[in-house]
Design a protein around this nucleic acid. Structure first.
Lengths: 217, 217, 217, 217
DNA sequence: GATGAATGAGCATTCATTCAT
DNA sequence: TATGAATGAATGCTCATTCAT
């Protein structure tokens, strides 16, 4: 299987390292697809960026679509991996919820390519996800943690009891996601740079605050 | 309908009516661009859908980009027009806020093409908005109403006083927007159709509830 | 028939003066065709330059080709007209010959559009001339004058007697024509501006001198 | 043949031989551009004539303009190559001059495509030559030989001493060039075929005779 | 006589993809 | 494994020309 993360040094000295070449191609693909969308992306450009012959794209991934799918799997795999490393077990529900909201914000802040690829995938009616066994099996630990945290908070009386986890997830994700996905148009329309570090920090505080307040009983 | 290009005489069968032809082209363009993005959209298809010769696109709009810009201006003009017709003056702050949140949800529910065009425009770093005098001048009445409603509510003690209108706007928009913009990927990932009428109704209730709760003092 | 020379003021006050409009179109056509050749010329540009509706081109001249033919007839008519006004009767053969050479040089110097149109017509294997009754009937007075002058000079012993008029005509025309037709490439290749007034004056002297010397018995 | 692009191995059947393919394309381009001018030339036709895919034109030459430039460089390279092989060292000035004039005539007689391309390049104000380092560096041996021959002849008293080489070059070239460049219009206007072998032979004699006579002291 | 609207065929150029080595 | 050569099917755009008023 194609590894989603580039291997800096493979075990063997191999000049021709298939896995490494694939990883480089995937990174180049993520960059190109997120920048220009599937239709706007150029296979030539991906090969050029990766520093390999264009034919290798077809050799390893069969088609532009095939590479796109792997790129999409790769970005999903990465966020799932990061989500796994959230350790909230020892925390109070309020603090745990705060961390979940913060993670959601911070991950999107750090991964614009994830947003861009999701955007394209949605225009495509999630066709690649639906067709990918890998992606359908890739269960989100985040939603489980959120559900557990929510239930704990409800049990302890710090959260309202009439909110279901999926709706909460979408709201938490949404207040961060929209800020990033539409950052440029919002900045342009409101004539105010929402891309600055200050705007980011201010938004981060608001997001955590807003979500936790909405959960108060 | 809120067409940005007025038809001189709607009584005639619309042959050889430049304004009408342009309006038809713009509608076809909105459809095609929202379906496939700028890069994926086909000028041929737009002309075919509009039922006119392809050259007219270039005659009236100079280029694919030119048509795209006008299409974008058109969808923005339409939402601004709708926003203007919100009349909240007579309402209590809570009710007014509820209507603003509902409007935000309902408009996006009814206008997937708006979301799709915004998505593309953001990938493009809002370049068209920044270059369009028309769009930069198109001030949003929504944010003003939101600001006024927020202040009233704060004054009457029904809303918290530590939230600024722009952050609130982004949060309100975000909890609805993300649900729609990412409806397909969310449905696929969570294995649950979020596009059904039931899911929509349920989400609508959550959104209003969530936002108003977050505003409680 | 279309008049090749623009009428500044027609006899009637007529706002809509067909002949005048045609003349303006022809001038615009000569300019555009000489600048860009037949294939490179744009009917739109001709109409724009003439300040009239494009459809008038088709109304008056049927097609781009039709306009081109009239433009070609126009430039030929003009040089023939000028040739007619050469009055050499009273001159000595040497002086007459000198004037003929000078005329050839001066006319080409003043009429780059003539050279440009001839160039295009030759690429086209003179097809328009061959198809135009007007052009085939347009006899050149120049060649007759040259023939007469040559014969007089031979009779008086100032010119060689083994040169026929047509060859002489081509040589006289050639030494001027090539300088103008290829002025840009010659300047570029030899790194020396042959378009300056000084270069022109120097060339003019050479041309007359060269031709007359070649005719010495 | 003086092909500007060397074929690595002429033994192979020339499939998948980049240099050979380029050379074939250049020859096809020279033919098409000389026949129809830059604006009238069709990239499709060039590819068809060359028997290769149209995209290769863009692969190797970037654009129609790029191919045109290379074609122009090619025809200039070829005449310069031929000029180099003129060996006049052992000849008397009169005989050497005669050969120079004859070469000028014969080369143009054999290379109508050179004339056609020059014609187009002049309409373009020599823009390609001016932009091509290759072409600007391509010094003409002909003008040097002409200069040397002229000086020798003057020294020996067989040529006049008041003619400069560049003017002489233009005159020599002109009396041949004009005959060929305007052969069709001259034939049409004078109602006499100047394209026949007989007319060519007669003109050749005249040209040499005319030039040498003009140089007599 | 004059104009703006509209068209069909064509054209330079692009791009994903396959072939041959 | 990896590469350069080559291709077919678009794709945005142009242009001469015709239609309707």
């Amino acid at each position: 299987m194609a590894s989603p993360v580039p291997r800096k040094s493979s075990s063997s000295p191999a000049r021709r390292d298939a896995a490494a070449t694939q990883a480089i191609l995937i990174q180049a693909a993520i960059s190109e697809f997120s920048r220009n969308g599937f239709a706007g992306a150029r296979v030539d450009e991906i090969a050029r960026t990766a520093g390999v012959n264009k034919q290798l794209v077809y050799h390893y991934f069969n088609s532009k679509q095939g590479l796109y799918l792997v790129a999409l799997e790769s970005v999903y795999a990465e966020i799932r991996e990061k989500e796994k490393h959230l350790s909230l077990e020892a925390l109070e529900p309020l603090e745990a919820m705060s961390q979940l909201v913060a993670f959601s914000f911070d991950y999107l802040a750090a991964h614009p390519e994830f947003i861009a690829l999701l955007s394209d995938e949605n225009r495509n009616r999630a066709s690649h996800i639906l067709e990918s066994r890998v992606l359908r099996k890739m269960h989100s630990p985040f939603i489980d943690m959120l559900d557990a945290t929510l239930k704990q908070g409800v049990a302890r009386g710090v959260f309202r009891d009439d909110i279901d986890a999926l709706n909460l997830y979408i709201s938490i994700a949404g207040i961060s996601y929209f800020f990033f996905s539409n950052n440029h148009t919002l900045s342009a329309i409101f004539g105010k740079s929402l891309g600055s570090r200050a705007a980011l920090a201010q938004r981060r505080r608001h997001v955590i605050d807003f979500a936790l307040n909405a959960l108060r009983p």
